[in-house]
Design a protein around this nucleic acid. Sequence first.
RNA 1: GAUCCCGUAGCUCAGUUGGAUAGAGCAACAGCCUUCUAAGCUGUGGGUCGUUGGUUCGAGUCCAACCGGGAUCGCCA
Length: 592
Amino acid sequence: MILEQLLKDQVGLAVKNLSGTEVPEAGIRIEQTNPDFPGDYTVVVFPLAKLMKQSPDTCATAIGNYLKEHMADLDDFHVVKGFLNLSLKDSVWIGCLRDQWESEHPGKGTEGQGVKVMVEYSSPNTNKPLHLGHVRNILLGWSVAEILKYTGYDVVKANLINDRGIHICKSMLAWQKYGHGETPESAGIKGDHLAGKYYVLFDVHLKEEIKALVAAGMGEEEAAKNAPMMLEAQEMLRRWEAGDETILTLWRTMNGWVYEGFNSTYARLGVDFDKYYYESDTYTLGKDLIHEGLEQGVFFRKEDGSVWIDLSDEGLDQKLVLRSDGTSVYITQDIGTAQLKADEFGISRSIYVVGNEQDYHFKVLKCIMQKLGKPYASGIYHLSYGMVDLPSGKMKSREGTVVDADDLIADMVQAARAKTEELGKTEGLNPGELDQLYEILGLAALKFFILKVDPKKRMLFNPEESIDFQGDTGPFVQYTYARIRSMERNINGETKIPEQLQALSPLEKNVIRQLYSFRAAVADAGASMDPSVIAQWCISTARAFNRMYNELPILKEQDPEARMLRLCIIQATAKSLHQGMMLLGIRCPEKM
RNA sequence: GAUCCCGUAGCUCAGUUGGAUAGAGCAACAGCCUUCUAAGCUGUGGGUCGUUGGUUCGAGUCCAACCGGGAUCGCCA
């Protein structure tokens, strides 16, 4: 990043001195040189040639000559078809390596210094266990939060738990009717799975009731509304809202089970939160803001008493913000919660990790907050990600077509065990260490599989084909790290960047350049809130290293200067890979 | 119907914000372990970048239209 800037400045100076015209910085394009050509950085000359009223090639040559005269760091240049390829001196790259090698936290940025941001993710319903879709949400949210921290932001990780509503009552009701006092302990299953079991059971019985009503001559829709189970669930919600102690006790008990289940899944995934919000606390919020907005004329009231906002001049529709009976809707709560977050934490940016099915909702939310004149409104950002689809289509909890999070993790850990045993790599580790290794490997495969793809794209998961441990995978990066660590254990003695050396080999330079790009990758990932940038960087880096490893001796290099340089390269590589994987929430084993 | 997202190799995905001859992995085939971990490395084959126009020195990338897939537009959350 800094090298690019330096070159931009120099090229700007060159053009100014050669032709007397000032170039805006945006007009200078510096790119990494295509690997098929000699050089490190490329100046795209076409726009400059226009400015200087010369042919691209003469212009490129002129700039090249100027730079060679005025830039000590420039080794040589080549002009190819209007591209000016610049080769920097090896000493420049050694300097880059030194920075990387000395740095405690390679790639760490300061972009977000002094900015407080909240990342809200996971946000589960407490009536069923987590599935693969939630896993994508959780991993994305956690990783984005870590990346933002690493670029200097002050981050609060938040989880807004949807712990009330008709869906919760469905689980509770089914448990009351058919549970016979079953508990996670008595049933021997996780609390969230137990709640999910009764949620499904509710649906089964409801469908039977509807079928019976339809058979008795009632219309489909009518039957769905009037099925006894449904009426009972609604009655239960009313009693919950009225503060019925029996219902509240049951609600607390069952939610407690679910939280225990969620917490063990969160712990296994290695994610955490700084702040929990509960919808049972927040669902009444927002109404006073609606009234405020009514007075300001932001909202309007219809004859039936319902309150709306007209966003048609924003290209959106009219949107209901308060029901005719004065109760709140989803967006009402979100309006209130946005205010609450700002009040409690003084955040200027608020990131919501939520699926792309809610794109419209968040567009509306941001719009409303802006119209209400809230200063934090412009900092509202919906990190919208694509759904995870199965070959059979969309996952649906009620229809049982979901990939359960706990099952999936267990499968991945099992696969890691099978793979390790198949490769015969269990030697030298005791059973406890092996279990730990399988956990690290299995989770890495899963996390990397999810995080390496662009969040906004929907992704396909085929449960029939297990997630790979070869190629562009988490274990591939981990393996590279473990290889380096193995060498590091055999270094014997101090390492330091050598003062003198022969020319860098292309393979060495490749790795150094790759390491140098880590800071840019972190900055990019932070700015675009996209962990896949980091994942892709890890793959490229591991690949660059493996190529060097395969071609050049390292520990066994005879020349002491060359050996020392390579040792520094591998140490810097291990450090950066480790850091990159940490940002993805993936641990790296010392041996595998 | 309207709005938004997506469409790149058989499959899963990259593509440095408009730059050079479009790249990886998986799968297939052919090689590399008496030398630092072969979960690795090298090579071969595989492409109308959904289609058609447009913008310009230059388009997978920007614009328009169309085709295909998905989502949303509920007094559900």
